[in-house]
């Protein structure tokens, strides 16, 4: 069922809490927003309200990990990753087995505006050695990633989640392949690859459907892992396209578009890359739809961008 990925996270971690007593959650006065309150109600002795003090929360979580716990620490992505040095030293350099959960990703939060939007969080987290950076596109994929983070991932990881509801896109019955690109929509003789992450994937699917009606065939893939990024799959499929477009609700400096550019730099030949997302500027207030459109990565803006490129290049 279509849900905000924060909601899917809150439900998934509360379920996993039954089987894994080592899971503990810390929150910094945002448990109603991050949906860690579901876990808190079920396991009050394993939930720690840290107040509005994120740096202390990060260090405390690292300590809990050193005492054998598996801490998930929740806040808005911007506030959490804003305490960068504490993440860098206390958690990552020290190889604390913790899961940072940053909700309220991107312009998608809407009216609250720039100060509450995680817009550089992926870039910041990707820069840290060994850090895993994950972003699901819908509720099913969120469940799968949360399970993966509990059962398989070792070391620090960052999970990026949305405030807004995202439509169901995960293919029915598909076995989860962690850290691999996933095909969402295949079409014959495609011109462009639309590669999205998080909220960008549903915009890509919307754009692909509109383009298809106008006789332009595209494929849609999604990337739930921004680190480690699946360069191998990208290398094997990119030659099928005249154009690769990345779509992300995040700055294009250091996010998915940069992952693809870094992967392409290793090839002698690759298609041109169009990086859609927040174009090295600030977020602002507005409805999510207005913001996605103004900043150029709504479904209809994807259509315009792809057509502009294909017309220009013909």
């Amino acid at each position: 069922m279509a849900k905000a990925t924060r909601q899917a996270f809150g439900e998934a971690i509360a379920r996993l809490g039954e089987k894994y007593p080592e899971i503990v959650i810390l929150d910094a006065d945002l448990s109603k927003s991050t949906k860690s309150d579901i876990f808190a109600k079920k396991f009050p002795d394993r939930f720690f309200e840290m107040g509005i003090a994120e740096a202390n929360m990060i260090g405390t979580a690292a300590g809990l990990a050193f005492a054998g716990k598996l801490p998930f620490l929740c806040s808005f992505g911007c506030f959490l990753t804003g305490r960068y040095d504490t993440i860098r030293i206390s958690a990552v350099y020290a190889q604390a087995n913790i899961r940072l959960v940053g909700t309220h990703a991107g312009l998608g939060i809407g009216e609250d505006g720039h100060s509450q939007m995680g817009l550089e969080d992926v870039s910041l987290m990707r820069a840290l050695p060994t850090m895993g950076v994950f972003q699901p596109m819908d509720s099913k994929e969120t469940e799968l990633i949360v399970k993966f983070l509990v059962e398989e991932w070792k070391g620090p990881a960052y999970l990026r989640l949305t405030r807004q509801t995202l439509p169901d896109l995960y293919p029915e019955g598909k076995v989860f392949e962690p850290c691999k690109l996933l095909s969402i929509l295949e079409n014959k003789n495609p011109k462009a690859l639309l590669l999205g992450t998080g909220a960008g994937v549903s915009e890509a699917v919307g754009g692909a459907e509109m383009l298809s009606k106008q006789g332009i065939s595209t494929c849609v893939w999604s990337a739930h892992a921004l680190k480690p990024f699946d360069e191998k799959s990208l290398h094997s499929i990119c030659h099928l396209f005249e154009l690769v477009v990345t779509i992300e609700d995040h700055t294009v400096v250091g996010g998915l578009g940069t992952c693809v550019a870094e992967a392409f730099a290793k090839l002698n030949k690759h298609p041109p890359l169009l990086k859609l997302g927040v174009q090295d500027t600030f977020g602002e207030s507005g409805t999510p739809a207005e913001l996605f459109s103004k900043h150029g990565f709504s479904a209809s803006e994807i259509v315009k961008n792809v057509k502009r490129f294909l017309n220009g290049s013909v």
Binding site: V24, D45, R46, F48, M57, G59, T60, A61, S90
Partner: peptide
């Protein structure tokens, strides 16, 4: 026990370990 050197951080980590001991 912890990686430190950036000031102000180790005390939070110590608190986390103490909290973990307390839970258990």
């Amino acid at each position: 026990g912890a990686s430190t050197g950036s000031m102000g951080q180790g005390l939070s980590v110590a608190q986390g370990i103490a909290l973990g001991f307390k839970i258990d």
